[in-house]
């Protein structure tokens, strides 16, 4: 499978995700945000970081960059798109995913390993996980407080478009296990066609036992065996 990682000024997880993708046997290419064509890709990843220094709003400036119109075209033709952290923020700013990410409720940058629960495993991104499986994945963000309007929240719930929720070690989803104030503990969502996933946690940081754990591996192996 061919993957492309989009690089913006201020991206800082682009190389981590490239290492993870190559480890999982993707043929990966890095794509600069000023490029106007995308290489042939089965998967496009928008990585974490602080694109344009988070000026205006996280992801707002990157969401208007040249390559974005190509990403939107690819998304509409069914290409798989994964936005992690700042990538999730960028996807909401482009309109590919609905809702937005507000400042963390406690106003602090949070960098820690948290538990998340797999809410839907019948998608191309999550098929190798079990339903309700609890993963330990790192988060590192200042704006991860997911917010959307009521009607969209209803749609997310009804259509199984919530990918992950923050929970505790035993899987309890409540205020105590909500690190950033996100609506209903939402950590990641799909679009209606489920070919786009945006998530705040960093699965690319969880692919090597030596530095963390391997809870992120199955996201990539789901994609490669889709």
């Amino acid at each position: 499978m061919n993957s492309s990682v989009i690089v913006f000024p201020g991206s800082n997880c682009d190389r981590d995700i490239a290492v993870a993708l190559e480890k999982m046997q993707f043929k990966n290419k890095m794509v600069w945000h000023k490029d106007t064509t995308l290489p042939k890709s089965d998967l496009i990843v928008i990585p974490g970081g602080f694109s344009y220094g988070d000026y205006l709003r996280s992801g707002a400036i990157a969401g208007k960059s040249l390559i974005v119109s190509e990403i939107i075209k690819a998304a509409n033709s069914g290409c798989l798109i994964l936005g992690i952290c700042n990538g999730f923020q960028i996807l909401t700013e482009t309109g590919l995913l609905k809702g937005t990410l507000l400042r963390n409720k406690n106003l602090k940058f949070i960098n820690k390993d948290v538990n998340i629960k797999v809410m839907n495993n019948e998608t191309k991104f999550t098929s190798k996980y079990n339903l309700n499986q609890i993963l330990k994945i790192n988060i590192a963000h200042n704006e991860g407080n997911y917010f959307t309007k009521k009607s969209h929240l209803e749609e997310l719930k009804k259509e199984g478009l919530i990918a992950f929720k923050y929970c505790d070690e035993k899987g309890a989803v409540n205020d105590r296990s909500n690190p950033n104030g996100a609506l209903e503990n939402i950590a990641g969502i799909f679009n209606a066609k489920k070919n786009i996933l945006g998530m705040m946690p960093h699965p690319e940081r969880m692919v090597d036992e030596m530095i963390s754990n391997t809870d992120g591996v199955n996201l990539f192996s789901s994609l490669i065996n889709k």
């Binding site: 205006l56 707002a60 937005t100 507000l102 917010f147």
Partner: peptide, 8 residues
């Protein structure tokens, strides 16, 4: 289109 995010 840019300065405000009309959702919030």
């Amino acid at each position: 289109k840019l300065l405000a995010n009309l959702i919030i």
